[in-house]
């Protein structure tokens, strides 16, 4: 039985204990980072290494439509992680059926299918997969998806033009080739 306050209710003076503790979100991200497997096509950058909740991920696909490009994604994780998913945005304007001109990414586990058991590795693998297999049935960039569906050769050409920093569909794309 709990007899906690059958004892004296003395004002407990615990002096000098106002040290901040590592937060649950930080701990979880730390664990996720220690289990990350990036392979040769991806790398991270931490603008402030003390802040592990904000970083960029660079993907350089070595096969598929987007081979040879360098793509950057901003990861921003809040204190409610892993209840909330990480916020991920592409920082460049690119031509991709699942990424819009603002850099929003349509990846199910970033939104409707996120669960706290998923980790950063799952998100990163998902992003990598988007470059290997762009998905025309869940479009954010409808025009690009239409082209991918109707004519893969045209799509391939469009991707190359956009990656070289080309201008079409009224948009100036970022040059992402080395």
């Amino acid at each position: 039985m709990m007899k906690i306050w059958s004892m004296q209710q003395a004002e407990t003076a615990a002096a000098g204990q106002k040290k901040k503790k590592v937060t649950a979100a930080q701990l979880r991200v730390q664990k996720d980072l220690s289990e990350l497997s990036l392979g040769s096509t991806m790398r991270t950058h931490f603008p402030n290494p003390d802040d592990i909740l904000n970083f960029t991920l660079t993907i350089e696909p070595d096969e598929g439509f987007y081979k040879g490009g360098t793509f950057n994604f901003n990861f921003s994780i809040n204190q409610n992680f892993p209840h909330d998913p990480p916020k991920v945005k592409c920082t460049q304007k690119i031509y991709h059926p699942n990424i819009d001109m603002e850099g929003n990414v349509c990846l199910n586990i970033l939104r409707e299918d996120w669960k706290p058991v998923l980790n950063l590795n799952a998100v990163i693998v998902g992003l990598q997969f988007l470059f290997l297999e762009p998905n025309a049935s869940d479009p954010l960039n409808k025009e690009a998806a239409e082209v991918l569906k109707s004519n893969r050769e045209t799509f391939k050409r469009n991707v190359r033009t956009s990656m070289a920093g080309g201008h079409f569909l009224g948009e100036n794309f970022h040059r992402v080739l080395k």
Binding site: V22, L33, S34, F46, D50
Partner: peptide
């Protein structure tokens, strides 16, 4: 074996990913 550690304010040492290892 391969400890990674931090305080609330500071990333003390991270074994992974490689760029963070380098930075810490």
């Amino acid at each position: 074996k391969k400890p990674t550690l931090r305080s609330e304010a500071k990333s003390l040492y991270y074994q992974s990913p490689p760029q963070l290892e380098e930075q810490t």
